[in-house]
Design a protein around this nucleic acid. Structure first.
Lengths: 336, 336
DNA sequence: CTGAAAGCGCTTACAG
DNA sequence: CTGAAAGCGCTTACAG
């Protein structure tokens, strides 16, 4: 591999000048810049980033830790993150945590080892000790998006989960539903708690009583939605007439459980999801759901992190708007 | 950040010894190794990877270029890639090409700039000139998976697309279908050509004639499947009784088009997809499709690349098995 | 088993 | 605008 020395020789100048011509062209005369450009092409030079990173002690790389790359929810968030990063000359290293604490630890370690400048965390399913340790360290650039820790304050971009769930529940109530169940995500997850709180308040506002066995826990997969849906629909006389699911995949699982149980959606059962993933328009029936501005979440989170890296003063907590999208999986409550 | 010097001071030895204790512990006495470990903990040292990379001129990073991170097909492939990489002490940098040639160029550039040791390419939607240039350069570690270029020989892991499509078509023929349409992916894509060839042969084998306006092109999205499906189903007397789609998302789009057109699947229309993504079990009806061993493709591709990096002799072309999964979107052809 | 020393390829403060 | 020189933090061949 040709180095900056080879270029300097070919351009008949010092390595310092080559470096300047490449990194800050305005510091160099037109003629020199041109000679250097020619020399670069001639010798087939490309900058050794490891050397630059070492010298500058920065890597221009941001690590994004996500719980599971298979989750379609994240793809737009990632697009948003990447578009802002690339525009600013940063790369994005996508780290799939895959429920593996070691892996997460190794991603975190990329920052002290100078392979990454900062981290965006999209999951709370990571070893708390690790995060706590880093957060104590003020110099560790760490931003959360989509999720957050309820016992730890970190800069974060999110939606108002409670309000969104509240509105979804209200909508079901407005349709005349009185027996409304919910399938939550993992119960310890703060955003799931928020969505559950929104659900409870929605019922309470309407004077409906909350039936604890209609609050069931899933894990955000199709399969868990299917299983919990099946169970909820078994009680065939006083079964729920509506189910609010904390994400779309579980809602789509419920649609299947309903089909298998011979319960017609939306005539006999209304279903609401959360996220508005692409598939929610292609399932049968199309899913009423809470739309999240996923790209914007990604963009905003990356901007926040880059601002932190530049030591800019920035709001550390931003909430973005959601929207209830009404499609065909909800309807007026059936007569008893 | 503490450096190796600080550790050396705390352990009362040279930096050379610290380096050895960390990188090749067997070269160092037990006592020293222990002292170094203590010192590392005491000063809170972590190795500066940029310095190591510069010195060793390797990065232990593999770039995976994919066309679109939102495509659920890739998530298992990525899991496979990552599991092998991490086991071997490599990191994976996921690069979303996003139909942006500049971005792809910058990912390719990671190798000469010493930020990546090799590339796995999961898409042919990249500037040919770039690939051609690199491939000419024998020292450039580049492996393809899932897709391939038909005018360029690169090490590649794939399935037998033609055979898989042939079998799927045969299956429809065996169900008595005589009017079988197909929705392809982008026509210039070699794997799409292969699948199309398999379809043609399947029809030819059965003595069915091939109707050119039943070979329509989509782009692998739900939407294109929906649109093309809608058009195919419009011709209501002699419309096709079966549609073979080159991926599941388009097949799911067709299911929706059929619902909208009042065509009942599978009684009036059989639909087959390709890939066996998770959704294919949660759409209505569940999708008959060609299963690809996605994890295995990923694992095999990463092993191949790592072997190439170690200059091992390896088979440069491996084909993995597919399987037709019969679910509920296919049935015997309706009577005319 | 250990240390002194060179060097990986850059960047940048300093001097002119 | 340009160059000589120091130095970023490691690793490793060499010598002992």
């Amino acid at each position: 591999m040709p180095t900056i020395k080879d270029v300097a020789r070919a351009a008949n100048c010092s390595t310092a000048t080559v470096s300047r011509a490449l990194a800050s062209p305005e510091k160099v005369s037109d003629a020199t810049r041109h000679r250097v450009a020619q020399a670069v092409a001639k010798v087939g030079y490309s900058l050794n980033a490891a050397a630059r990173n070492l010298r500058r002690s920065e890597s221009r790389t941001i690590v994004v830790i996500l719980p599971n790359i298979a989750n379609p929810f994240f793809s737009d968030v990632i697009s948003g993150l990447e578009s802002v990063a690339h525009q600013a000359g940063y790369q994005v290293l996508l780290g799939d945590a895959g429920n593996n604490p070691d892996r997460v630890a190794s991603y975190f370690n990329l920052v002290p080892s100078n392979q990454a400048d900062g981290i965006i965390l999209l999951s709370t399913e990571v070893p708390m000790a690790l995060v706590r340790e880093r957060q104590a360290d003020a110099g560790f650039p760490l931003v959360m998006a989509c999720e957050y820790f309820d016992n730890l304050s970190l800069p974060t971009i999110h939606i108002d989960n409670e309000q969104a769930a509240h509105k979804a529940t209200e909508y079901l109530v407005a349709l005349g539903h009185q027996r409304i169940a919910t399938i939550t995500g993992p119960a310890r997850n703060p955003i799931c708690k928020d969505r559950l709180r929104g659900y409870r308040h929605g019922l309470a506002d309407a004077g409906l009583n909350i039936q604890d066995d209609w609050i069931v826990e899933g894990d955000f997969t199709f399969h868990s939605g299917y299983e919990q849906g099946r169970i909820l629909l078994q009680q065939d006389k006083k079964r729920p007439t509506a189910i609010f699911c904390q994400n779309d995949e579980m809602a789509i699982g419920v649609l299947k459980a309903a089909r298998d149980a011979g319960v017609v959606v939306p005539e006999q059962l209304s279903v609401i999801g959360f996220d508005d993933i692409g598939f929610s328009q292609y399932c049968e029936p199309e899913l009423t759901t809470v739309h999240q501005p996923r790209e914007a979440i990604g963009r905003t989170a990356m901007r926040l992190l880059l601002d932190i890296l530049k030591q800019r003063n920035v709001p550390l907590d931003q909430s973005l708007k959601t929207q209830l999208i009404v499609r065909s999986s909800t309807a007026r409550a059936p007569r008893d």
